[in-house]
Structures are given as structure tokens and as C-alpha cells.
């Protein structure tokens, strides 16, 4: 399966990729989405840089999860196209992995099997997938919990399992749909810090959906602000937070606070 991902990368410059910027892992071209009588997204154009963490931020109902799921190939767009590594998306693919808001863990399977599940579906041998799963379970800080079941874990730990599962399939693009919304505040902060560290280690493209401004500014290289329904891109912000500083320093940094405030001022129009 990794072989398949590699071929995808190799063929990147061919075909429609010529239109995409060479360093864009994901290119969104004129995506519109209309449900029976609700227009959710209108004319989204977006390049998502390889190796960066991009956040889709916006008020509830702006269609940010819809956009993410269109990129994931879980929902069909009404018009437009999505290119991943230069190839048009027609459904889910091995080069993308999804982390779900409600974790989507198999309650009847252990942490080990859950993390290895993506590999199991690909027909990897038991030893191979367990070896890989063990590595990523350790990487997300759950070593020792391999034989536990999801109901024996806290919300934060469950989401780590979901994250490890996404990492284990070795995709280029990791998509996270409000991964911390079902997690308590303390866990959430710890998780955000881990995410930043993980991004350094894994060198993958992260695409992240959230409705928390602070979270977006804290973790992102780039923030894509979506307007209310029908969702359109209203602004793209690069927070330029220096992640070498300690988390506490960042959270007190005037630049960080100003960015949060200016985004809030921009969004205010939509919620008032």
C-alpha cells in the first residue's frame, strides 16, 4: 500500500498536476456543494501546502466539515474538483487518512486492533500491522494500553487511538475533523501541543477543522477562514507563531493574542 502512495507521489507532475502548484499537496478547484435546498459551499479555491498544518476555521454551519469530507472523498461535490498529489479525487484514497470528530473506534476491538484497522483492511499481515501499530501507539503516548478496549479509555485517549490509526496507514495528508471537540479542556491543550510536536516528527500535511480560534492560531501554519453559509473563503491568515517557544510563552505572546483578537473581530459579523 505504501507502494501505491509512492506511485501517486511519483506521478504528481503528470496530467492535471501541471495546473496545481508544485508544492500543493491538495488543490481545491471551484468546489460547490448544494444539499437538496441548502447551498453549503460556493466556489472554494484553495491550495494546501505540503508539510504544513492548515486549518479550516469558521462559525458553525459554514460547511468546513463538508469541505473536509469532500477532500476526503466521503461526500461528493456538486461541482468543481479536488486534486491530491495532482490526481483528481474520486472517493477515499490511501494517500489520505481521516481522524473523526467522534473517534469512530470499533468498540468491540482492542486499541491494538483499532490502530491496525486501516492496515487490516488493506490486507497487511498480522505481524506487520501489529508492529506498525505498536510504534504509533507509543508515538501518541498510549504504550501499555494495547489490549484495552475503547470504553476503558478516556475521551482524550480515544482520540489518540484515532490519531494513531490515521498515522499507521502512512498517508501523505492527515485530515482531522474537530478532533478535540469531544475532549475536556486540559486534555485538549496537551493534545494541541502533541499535535505540533507530531507535525515536526511526521512531516505530513495536516488539514484540520476547528471552530476554536485560539486552537487554530496556536497550532496552524495557515488558517483558512470560511464565511457563513453558503461557505466561501473570506480570508487566509498565516499566524506565524514561533513553536520553538514554550506553550505558555506562546499563549501569552502579544502577537498570538492580537491574531486571535483580529480573527474574532472578523468573525463577529457572522455571529452577531
Amino acid at each position: 500500500m505504501t507502494a501505491m502512495a509512492d506511485t501517486a507521489t511519483l506521478t504528481r507532475p503528470a496530467g492535471p498536476a501541471a495546473a496545481a502548484k508544485p508544492d500543493a499537496a491538495v488543490s481545491v478547484r471551484g468546489i460547490c456543494k448544494t444539499y437538496t435546498d441548502v447551498e453549503a459551499l460556493r466556489g472554494i479555491d484553495l491550495d494546501i501546502e505540503r508539510g504544513k498544518l492548515t486549518t479550516l476555521l469558521g462559525p458553525s454551519g459554514c460547511g468546513k466539515t463538508t469541505l473536509l469530507k469532500i477532500i476526503a472523498g466521503l461526500i461528493d461535490q456538486t461541482s468543481g474538483e479536488v486534486l491530491v498529489n495532482g490526481r483528481a479525487v474520486r472517493g477515499p484514497g490511501p494517500e489520505r487518512a481521516f481522524v473523526f470528530q467522534d473517534f469512530a473506534l470499533l468498540p468491540w476491538a482492542t486499541v491494538m486492533r483499532n490502530v491496525a484497522f486501516g492496515l487490516e483492511l488493506r490486507g497487511a499481515s498480522k505481524t506487520e500491522r501489529e508492529e506498525k501499530a505498536r510504534h504509533y501507539i507509543a508515538e501518541v503516548g498510549l504504550a501499555g494500553f494495547e489490549d484495552k478496549y475503547p470504553h476503558e479509555l478516556s475521551g482524550g485517549m480515544r482520540q489518540r487511538v484515532g490519531l494513531a490509526r490515521a498515522l499507521a496507514v502512512d498517508a501523505d495528508v492527515l485530515m482531522l475533523d474537530e478532533p478535540f471537540s469531544a475532549v475536556d479542556e486540559q486534555t485538549r491543550r496537551k493534545f494541541q501541543e502533541d499535535l505540533i510536536r507530531l507535525r515536526e516528527v511526521e512531516k505530513k500535511t495536516f488539514l484540520f477543522v476547528t471552530h476554536s480560534i485560539e486552537e487554530a492560531v496556536y497550532v496552524s501554519d495557515r488558517i483558512v477562514l470560511l464565511s457563513r453559509r453558503p461557505g466561501r473563503i473570506s480570508e487566509i491568515i498565516e499566524p506565524k507563531v514561533d513553536h520553538r517557544a514554550s506553550p505558555d510563552e506562546i499563549r501569552r505572546d502579544p502577537h498570538y493574542l492580537d491574531t486571535v483578537e483580529s480573527i474574532w473581530q472578523g468573525l463577529r459579523n457572522y455571529v452577531e
Binding site: 444539499y35 441548502v38 453549503a40 462559525p59 458553525s60 454551519g61 460547511g63 468546513k64 466539515t65 463538508t66 457563513r228 457572522y270 455571529v271 452577531e272
Partner: peptide
Amino acid sequence: MTAPVRLDGHTA
């Protein structure tokens, strides 16, 4: 996500 939020102003 797609559930309408009860808001006032121009969301009305």
C-alpha cells in the same frame, strides 16, 4: 455541523 444555529441579525 449543518444544523442551523439560532442567531439573530442577518442570520435571521
